[in-house]
Design a protein around this nucleic acid. Structure first.
Length: 451
DNA sequence: CGGCGTACG
DNA sequence: CGTA
DNA sequence: GCCG
């Protein structure tokens, strides 16, 4: 099997995985994903099928696909199947998952025209997703990601001076040191699972040139300062015309009015925002420069070009020839994390779904721990007594769990978990300047001391 | 034959 | 239900 | 679909 064959086989397995996922057969889906990842992880081209003997996750079905050099009839049939095509098309709409797509197909909806004419009620996300269908299914370049990052950074710094904005997800390039420590985790994965080429190899060298969205992680070196940040950032971005859609809060305009503000008690706990960003096409010669003067801080600058509503760029009938839009829509995710959870968030937002799942599965099954983008818990320990619901614990040398009590999912019986070791303590230096907390604390690094 | 990640909006 |  |  030469390289060409190899990639053909990977594509074939990917089709089968995707088809399973679209049909809500998640188990089969992940099985095919693992098989695909095993092929991807092979260090060299395979010439004979016997060389695949002994590899994990390659069972009868997957081997059959590989034998056919990825040209198995099943794969071709799947690709041409009307149901597969429709599911892929409809779930390509932001806000539409396999369940909704399946329901629509049952109603006879197989394409966007049918969706628009026979109008089932669309929620706000789906409306926005449909409106920007074309743009959102277009790859995002690294340059576009950086440009968005500069815009977001301005607003974030405006709302909270000293805050840090980090590009995460597939675009992020991990340092070699980060790679080493991640491999410490991944080694166990390779030994035990050996599946996720995407995770074990590519994640560590990710830095992809393109992506389907842009993810940012926001934090502040002083624990707690990040609380309530997200609604303000979103509000400001929106007021400046950068957000075509956002899901964080419907209370959008609390910013400009100086009312006796609600003590930000309730509404500011949001930590994720899924948005659709309005990015001007040719960034122009005026590239964003960090504004050093405190006065005229660029907060007030908005997108120069107001929304000229001659847009409506979706499936328009032909005839109206319009000049190309001066902007495009991009999916942008904003994540806010307290500094004590920063490394968890980095690890949890690598952008590789399979890697995340395998890592967490391994943590649970092999280590009796539970890993999330907030913390790592021992599933056998009782929770710390000092929890207060809704609070975020301060990071102490006593290694307090940085998590809210209400987030603990506790099976009624089994005692469950205080956090043991904060991954931050182990990964911190690996992430270099990204993890100020660990650098400053300068503590001895013990990598999963219980191994 | 059961399990297949774990959260948030 | 959707998102990552 | 593959694994324990």
């Amino acid at each position: 099997m030469n390289l060409i064959w190899g990639s053909l086989c990977q594509e074939a397995l990917s089709i089968l995985a995707e088809n399973a996922e679209l049909n809500e057969e998640d188990g089969r889906g992940i099985a095919f994903r693992r098989a695909e990842a095993v092929l991807k992880a092979l260090p060299r081209a395979v010439r004979k099928l016997t060389e695949l003997k002994g590899l994990p996750c390659l069972g009868e079905h997957s081997l059959r696909i590989i034998k056919a050099s990825g040209k198995a009839a099943e794969v071709e049939a799947t690709k041409q199947s009307e149901r597969y095509k429709a599911l892929k098309l409809l779930t390509g709409i932001f806000g539409v998952g396999a369940k909704t797509a399946d329901r629509w197909i049952t109603m006879g909806i197989y394409n966007l025209q049918q969706l628009q004419s026979s109008g089932p009620t669309l929620n706000q996300a789906q409306q926005a997703g449909l409106e920007h269908y074309e743009d959102l299914n277009q790859p995002v370049t690294r340059a576009e990601a950086d440009h968005i990052g500069e815009i977001v950074r301005r607003v974030v710094l405006c709302v909270l001076p000293g805050a840090q904005l980090t590009l995460i997800g597939g675009f992020r390039r991990y340092t070699s040191r980060a790679a080493l420590d991640l491999i410490n985790i991944a080694d166990h994965l390779t030994a035990k699972i050996c599946t996720d080429a995407d995770g074990i190899v590519d994640i560590l060298n990710r830095g992809k040139p393109t992506g389907h969205d842009v993810d940012f992680l926001i934090t502040h070196p002083e624990e707690g300062r990040e609380v309530g940040l997200l609604p303000k950032v979103v509000s400001l971005l929106k007021s400046q015309g950068f957000l075509l859609y956002q899901k964080t809060t419907k209370n959008s305009y609390l910013e400009s009015e100086d009312r006796p503000t609600q003590p930000s008690s309730n509404m500011d706990r949001f930590e994720r925002c899924f948005s659709i960003f309005r990015l001007k096409r040719n960034p122009g010669t005026t590239l964003v420069k960090p504004d050093t003067s405190p006065r005229s801080s660029s907060c007030t600058q908005s997108q120069s070009e107001r929304h000229s509503h001659q847009e409506s760029a979706e499936v328009r009938g032909n005839g109206s020839e319009s000049r190309p839009k001066s902007w495009r829509a991009v999916r942008v995710d904003l994540v806010v994390s307290p500094i004590s959870q920063f490394a968890f968030a980095l690890l949890g937002w690598t952008g590789s779904k399979l890697f995340e799942r395998e890592l967490r599965r391994w943590a649970g099954h092999e280590k009796a721990m539970s890993l999330s983008s907030h913390a790592l818990y021992d599933t056998k320990q009782l929770p710390e007594s000092s929890f207060r619901g809704g609070d975020i614990c301060s990071p102490g040398p006593g290694v307090h769990p940085s998590i809210r009590e209400k987030r603990l999912k506790r099976p009624a019986e089994r005692p469950w978990d205080t956090q043991l070791w904060r991954v931050a303590d182990h990964l911190g230096p690996a992430f270099g300047s990204d993890c100020r907390y660990s650098l400053e604390s300068n503590r001895q690094i013990h990598w999963f001391v219980t191994y």
